[in-house]
Amino acid sequence: MIDVHMDPQVLAGLQEVMEGEYPRLLDTFLHDSEERVKALRTARGDTQALRQIAHSFKGSSGNLGAVRLALLCQRLEMASAGDIGGLVDQIDREFAVVRAMYEGELRRVFVG
């Protein structure tokens, strides 16, 4: 499993393109991701719903440079029923790591 939680080059590119809207992009990602993690926990018994949530979460995570989170979502999207619970737990833990990193990025942008 890849150990890269956040790709700083992706974030640098987004900051360059988004300029003043970059903090809002990060904030939106964090808020939406929290909702997706909650939805994953709620949908544990519904494989189809889990796959749909994982697909959407994979895209947003990849677009924002959350490399490991995107990979875990991809694995959940393609997982068999027996693997789902453990992957949801891994996604939950990885999002906690990512959230802290992106909150740090928000602080950096506001201070810098």
Results as ranks from 00 to 15, higher is better:
42 T>E: 15
109 V>G: 04
51 R>A: 04
108 R>E: 00
112 G>D: 01
111 V>M: 10
9 Q>A: 04
22 Y>H: 01
62 G>E: 12
60 S>H: 06
79 A>F: 00
69 L>H: 06
18 M>E: 03
87 L>H: 03
98 V>Y: 05
10 V>F: 07
97 V>T: 13
30 L>C: 07
34 E>A: 14
48 Q>E: 14
85 G>K: 03
50 L>F: 00
50 L>A: 05
40 L>K: 01
15 Q>T: 04
43 A>N: 11
39 A>Q: 06
96 A>V: 11
64 L>V: 10
22 Y>I: 09
54 A>H: 07
101 M>L: 15
54 A>E: 15
51 R>T: 06
72 L>S: 04
80 S>I: 07
45 G>C: 09
85 G>N: 09
16 E>L: 14
7 D>I: 15
38 K>F: 11
43 A>K: 07
85 G>Y: 01
108 R>Q: 01
47 T>Y: 00
93 R>C: 08
103 E>N: 03
46 D>L: 13
18 M>D: 03
70 A>F: 03
3 D>Q: 13
7 D>V: 11
14 L>M: 04
34 E>L: 14
58 K>P: 02
69 L>Q: 10
29 F>S: 01
86 G>L: 12
21 E>L: 14
48 Q>M: 08
51 R>Q: 15
31 H>S: 12
84 I>Y: 02
2 I>D: 15
72 L>D: 07
22 Y>D: 00
82 G>C: 06
87 L>S: 03
35 E>T: 07
48 Q>T: 11
73 C>I: 04
46 D>Q: 13
40 L>N: 03
105 E>N: 07
101 M>E: 14
52 Q>R: 11
73 C>V: 02
107 R>S: 13
37 V>C: 11
49 A>T: 15
80 S>E: 15
75 R>N: 08
99 R>P: 03
12 A>K: 03
21 E>G: 05
94 E>R: 02
1 M>P: 08
106 L>Y: 00
78 M>C: 08
